[in-house]
Amino acid sequence: MGKLQRLPDRHRTSLAGGATLASSASPAAAITVRGLGKAYATSAGEPIQAVSQVSFDVAVGEFVSIVGPSGCGKTTVLRILAGLVDGYVGSVSIGGRVVHGPTPDIGVVFQDANLMPWRTVLANVTLPGQVLRLEPKACRQRARELLALVGLAGFEAKLPGELSGGMRQRAAIARALLHDPRILLMDEPFGALDAMTRDAMNVELARIASQAGKTVFLITHSIAESVFLSDRVLVMSSRPGRILAEIEIDLPRPRNLDVVADSRFANTVLHIRRLLEQTGGNPRVTLAH
């Protein structure tokens, strides 16, 4: 993972399914979703269909983003992938295995930072290490590096209450990376950031993902961000969410921010925007950040 040290091998093997999963998932799909549908029971009584007939794959090492109007079911899909929601139809597998619950192969960045207010920033980032029984010293070392990576060096001893929203979100990203998961699920991780920091974080995420060969599934409201980061962009319809289109982004890698000047970039962004305008719904999707 770039300039970051990996955790010592003996700790990696302690991540139960981790080692086996990677070996079984040859060039195959890291994530497979077939005919996924999910209805929530509402307090009013009649169920509300969040997503229906959603199918897609994410290959190992691929970066896939999903864009769609607010409330179309993006978070629902992500939570199902993370093993946090059941009672859905269709099939979902991670690394060739049907999802039966959460697995530490996945790192999740939630839509809200969800830091523990009683833990310092550093202790929040090392939390996954405590759950997965990793060696505390190695965790702290790695947490420091990750915090530096997301631009929070010097804030290790602060409490979350003393951070801004964007800083909390960045701490949550560092936390999701602590146990070096092969798959990253990110739910609008940069929503609370200013444009400049967001650009910097995008570049950093692209670097982490490509250097560490991570599989990333990213939800975003920024079309530009999705095009900049992804190998493929899934466009989702308004509720009940379906996949309207899958758009390959064949801009060369590594990409830097100059790519926005590329005409292919601009055309792709425009194309996705048109698709989203057709589906209607709440236009929370923006062209730029």
Partner: peptide, 29 residues
């Protein structure tokens, strides 16, 4: 306890005891 905070642990496959000691209990203090 805020469900979002528990999700952070649950997503890692944390057991009931870990959820209790690392999130619910400090949250209840």
């Amino acid at each position: 306890c805020e469900p979002g905070r528990l999700d952070v642990l649950r997503a890692l496959g944390a057991g009931r005891w870990d959820c209790f000691r690392l999130v619910k209990l400090p949250n209840a203090l």
